[in-house]
Each structure stands twice: as structure tokens, then as C-alpha cells.
Design a binder for these strands. Structure first.
Lengths: 337, 337
DNA sequence: GTCATTCGCGTAATCGGTAACGCAAAGCGA
DNA sequence: TCGCTTTGCGTTACCGATTACGCGAATGAC
């Protein structure tokens, strides 16, 4: 069952390979009769074009490359899934790489993907905002940033409106009558910065002053998973003025924070309410179901796929930005049953 | 910053492209002096080989293809992550496709991956065992089955020893003094079959008869997520003889089953104990932390990557089977604190 | 000092497909 | 019927690499 090539079909029919190629490519200069014969034989032999050769000759590989920091992170998993499906519908394959949250691996993976000839590069970068000047592809292929934006680069972007995310979560807590809303934040990336900005915006709109020690950010390098939130919460609690609500940068940190709060004997949500971001699956099975902000990850994937296939076809088209509206999912961590 | 090609380096140095290629390939027939000059220039220009061309000429693409049923499923997410990292270490890229649990899409994705010239194909198939004769690649590329085995095909396999998984979970429940251990099973795939076999083996070893209505399997098609377990548990409870323990096919079904049990007023684990499979993340944050069997997903990924890179290098080597030992993670769903 | 090796590198063909051009036959108007 | 445009398909070159071979020069044996 060796692969059947263009040449085989051509020889079979007594035509040239070019003719067959033209038929498959939809070139109108081939006569109806020949076209029909070719198409028939193509189906009979179940011909499948060799994409490597096609890529070499045509300068396109019909493949998109995706670099994510961590495939296990529910957001990126869902995103990759949704993206892959939508890309397939556009005839694009997906090459996947994980940077393991390491900027150097990220650069390496990007290089590898480019060498493999991807038509468009999607990156959820783990570079910090300061390193904006760093290597981001070779400029020859369109770049599409995911979730984390680097405005100075001028690349396309698909993600959530994170300022709104921050506002929405914080406003929810305020609307519940909480006056002492703290924030456990992330570091370096645009979502972290923007969500904190949204938090401050909502607080300002409600005319509530934000005490300096109410915003805690911890370096993600030294800690992993939920421990960031855990230690951040301990830090908050060790201070005099205790918050009655916390808006957390993401769900995992919210989990850690809730753990620390419960260990300190606080009741959720009576004594202290929590809001996370990401709306991770199983959120409803948790000990305390978590109120969270949903990014509409599937829609993000579809939007990214659309933009990607457009960029793959016309690499020189202008950079575009797609921002999706977040949605608040209210659960027990903020509202008692 | 257009891509630098072999030809550019060659022209620069006044040698032929073949010479450069030979140097990079480690061919010993090139003199020390030339070799040094070439390597120097290669580094200066930061030359990156075009993998498409390399693949065309050499018949290898240095790429592995992976087809999973659902990237969001924690097992496959973790597996893909681990696999990708380990493959990278072997110089292989990863092309990812998701079949969405649809056998037809699966076949389509496999075709696509083969057209793209992957050197080896890894598939966690969603075909049922009966459809073994179905299309599984073209036979020209080595096939590596993941998690779900099809013994008749004679392909390589990497997965858990699922009979042992079933035994281990069931034995744990029996060792806790439970006499009425039921089983909520999956359908069609080898893990489901094997785990049920393990369950029966453990029951037989303890000389406990398995009532016919103590084994419930439901068709996964009509239901999704945890609802399988939910309805299965209701089915179990609606019968006269009530179990005091349930060994579940996977964690999600265990979650659903526990939900149904709690709704029926049963206390976990006092009245009824549960064991799941998969040891999904967040298991410890659950309302009732779930005792589960860990597959060592990361190790599976690494093992698969090793085998895959070996198969990619010598496609004709014999099919191999790698079975990893499962580990029991005891939590509150089976043992009170 | 010859002849046979080895060494070191280049030439040509190939992988499977695509794009630019060429060219014969058919169509058409006058 | 002559000449000009289409129509329909084939030739050639090329994408960027690799492998098989060829050949001149340096090397060594005698």
C-alpha cells in the first residue's frame, strides 16, 4: 500500500504530472474530458498529496504552529482542542509545542516550528513584558499572539478583554456589599497587568481606596500550581487589615488562597468571598464551588483559527486584534446558597 | 531576515552545497579545515535547515503524529505534554490532532498526518474493539497505540496494565472490609474490558460472588462527562441489593456516581466507598477527595516518546509493548480521615 | 619515479509537487 | 484559404535538501 504519487496517476492515464496537478489545483485550462478522467482515477487510487513536497514547491505547508506554556493548564488544553478542530475545517494542520513556561525553550520551539515551515505561528508567550524585544519568529511568517499580548510588537492578537475581566470580577464582589476587596495578582504578562488595572478601575468607580498591602503579587518562578495563591493569602492574612473578599488572578491561585483562608478558620463566603478567572472544569465539584470568570475558551480557539487561516493565506495582511467578552459564573465561593 | 539556506553558506565559502550538507551530517570525508570553516559560518549565520526539504529528500520528517480523542481530558493533556517534551529531546516535532471521539474523524486525521509525512503515528484510538479491521495508517509508517490496545493489529503499545488497575482498585476496597463491591464500567475499549476483568479477578481471589446486576456499563455515546457515572449509580441504587463500595472505570464516572450517591442520602465513605481511575488533578480539592489509581501519565509519555523515536529511526523494528505499573492514591472517598 | 590508493570535494540525479512558459491543434473571422 | 487567437496540454526549471557516484590531487609503497 505504498503511497500513490501524482506521477503514478499521470502514467496511468498517459498524461503529464503537471496536468494532474492542474486538475487537482482547479486550474481551468484543462479540458472537461481529461479533467473527468483524472478525477476518476484520483478517487479510485485514493490519492493523497504529499504535503511536504507541496510545501517545498509552493512555499506553503498548510500547517499552523502553536506554542503554549503548558498543555495541562485547562485553558491551553481547551484552547488547543478548539483551535485544532477549527483549523482542520480550514484545511490547516496543527504542530504543537510546549514551552514549559521557559522563555528559552519557547524561542527554541518557535525556531523549530519555523524550520518545519509552518504558515502561521500562534504563540501564548511566557516572555515577560520587559523582554518585548526578544526573538518572535523571523518576521517572514505572520505571528498571532494568544492570551498574552505584546502591544509593541504590533502582531495580531486573540484574547480576552482582561481589563474588563478584572472589572467584572471586582464589581461582582463590590455589588455583594464587600468593602475590603483585595487582589492576588500574577506577574509579568499582559493579562495579569490588565486584570489588576481592571480591579483598580472597579474599585475607583466604587470610590473605594485600595490599601497598598491589598494587592499581592508573587513571583511565579519559585512556586507552582496553587501554592502561589496559598502563600499570597497567608501574606494578606498576616497583615492587620483583613479583606472580606479577594479577586484572584486565576482559578488555581484562588484554590490556594481558599485553602489558606480555610486553614485560618475563615468561612467562605460568609467571612471572605473569592472570585477566580478561567472557569476551570470541575469548578463545580470543588469543596467550595468557585465563582469564576469564563474566557469563552472555545470561541477564542475558533476566532484564532479563523484569523490564523486568513493570515496563512495572505501573510502580508494587517495585524488584527480580537478581544472576546468574558462572562461571570457565580458559585458558592462568593454567594452562599 | 529571510531564511538562510545551504546554498547561501556554500556560495559564501566558495564550496558546494553538498560539502556543507556533508559537514552538517557528520560525514567524515570532509577535511578538517573545510569542516571548521563551514561550521563557523553556519553558526554565524545561524543556519536552520529546512525540514520540509530534508524530509522530502531523506524520506524522514523528524516529526511524530499524535491523535487523541480529546485533548481536554486530563489524561491526554498530560500525556501530550509529556510526550511533546520527550520527543523534543529526541529531535522530533509533534503534530497533534484530536478525533473528538469520532471514529471517522480519527481516520481522516490519521490520513492527514500521514500525508504530512510523519515518521511515526501515535494513536489513542476511539474505535471500538470490534472495528479492529478498520483503517489504521498505511502500514508504511510504524504505528504506536496509546492507552487503548488492539491486540489483533500487532502494533506497538504503550499503556497501563489495566487488568492490574482493576485488581488494585477492587482489592483496596475489599481490604477495607467491603463485601459488596460493584463496578461501573466503560465500554468498547481495551482499558474498560481489562479493568472489568481485573475487578472480577480480585473478587474471585477474595471468593466473593459478583451478582449480575453489580456490573453496570452504559453507552458512552448518549451521555457525556460525569453523567455516565451518575446514571449508572442511579441504576445500581434502584436495585434491591445495595453495594457498599464501587470501583469506577474512571474518575469522571466516579464523580458522577458520588453525586448520585450523595443525593440518595448516602455518606461517603461510611455507607459507600469509591475508587476511580486516572488520578485527575484537582482530585484533592474535590468535595470528597477521590481515591484513584494513577497511571503515571508522565512516565507513559516518556516511554511512548522513547519507543516512538526508536520506531521513527528503524521503522521495521519489531512491535513492542510497554506496560506501566499503576499506583493507588488513597483519599477520603474510600477511607475516612 | 611510477602506479595504486586514499582523501577531499564537486556533479548529477532524486524526492513529489508547482509555476512559468512553449507550442501544436483547433476555432474563427475575413 | 490564410493568419490570428484560444484552448489544452507538455517541457523545463525550481523549491532545499540528500545520496550515489566521479574525478583530480596528494599520499604512500616499491
Amino acid at each position: 500500500m505504498a503511497a500513490v504519487r501524482l506521477k503514478d496517476i499521470a502514467k496511468d492515464l498517459g498524461v503529464s504530472t503537471v496536468t494532474v496537478s492542474k486538475v487537482l489545483r482547479g486550474n481551468p485550462e484543462i479540458g472537461e474530458k481529461t479533467r473527468a478522467r483524472v478525477l476518476k482515477r484520483v478517487r479510485e487510487l485514493n490519492y493523497q498529496p504529499n504535503m511536504q513536497a507541496r510545501g517545498l514547491a509552493g512555499g506553503r505547508s498548510f500547517t499552523a504552529g502553536l506554542v503554549v506554556p503548558d498543555l495541562v493548564h485547562p485553558f491551553f488544553g481547551e484552547f488547543a482542542k478548539s483551535l485544532g478542530g477549527a483549523l482542520r475545517a480550514s484545511g490547516l494542520g496543527l504542530m504543537l509545542a510546549s514551552s514549559e513556561e521557559d522563555p528559552e525553550i519557547e524561542v527554541q520551539e518557535i525556531r523549530t516550528l519555523l524550520n518545519r515551515g509552518v504558515d502561521v505561528l500562534l504563540v501564548a508567550s511566557c516572555q515577560t513584558l520587559e523582554s518585548e524585544s526578544l526573538f518572535f519568529g523571523d518576521g517572514a511568517r505572520p505571528l498571532l499572539l494568544i492570551d498574552r499580548n505584546f502591544t509593541k510588537i504590533g502582531a495580531s492578537f486573540v484574547g480576552s478583554d482582561d481589563v474588563q475581566v478584572g472589572e467584572m470580577g471586582t464589581r461582582h464582589l463590590i455589588s455583594l456589599g464587600r468593602k475590603h476587596v483585595a487582589h492576588i495578582g500574577g506577574q509579568g504578562m499582559s493579562p495579569a497587568v490588565d486584570r489588576q488595572a481592571g480591579y483598580r478601575k472597579a474599585m475607583a468607580a466604587a470610590k473605594i481606596k485600595v490599601p497598598a498591602n491589598f494587592v499581592v503579587t508573587r513571583d511565579r518562578i519559585e512556586e507552582s500550581g496553587d501554592s502561589v495563591g496559598y502563600y499570597a493569602m497567608q501574606e494578606l492574612l498576616s497583615q492587620g487589615a483583613r479583606p472580606d473578599a479577594v479577586f484572584c488572578y486565576n482559578d488555581l491561585s484562588a484554590l490556594g488562597a481558599m485553602k489558606a483562608a480555610m486553614q485560618a478558620g475563615l468561612r467562605i463566603p460568609e467571612d471572605i468571598a473569592f472570585v477566580g478567572c478561567g472557569n476551570l472544569r470541575y469548578a463545580e465539584y470543588l469543596k467550595v464551588p468557585l465563582t469564576s470568570i469564563d474566557h469563552g475558551t472555545e470561541r477564542l480557539g475558533v476566532a484564532a483559527a479563523n484569523l490564523a487561516s486568513q493570515l496563512a493565506e495572505s501573510p502580508l495582511s494587517l495585524a488584527q486584534t480580537v478581544l472576546l467578552e468574558p462572562r461571570l459564573m457565580v458559585r458558592r465561593s462568593s454567594v452562599a446558597e
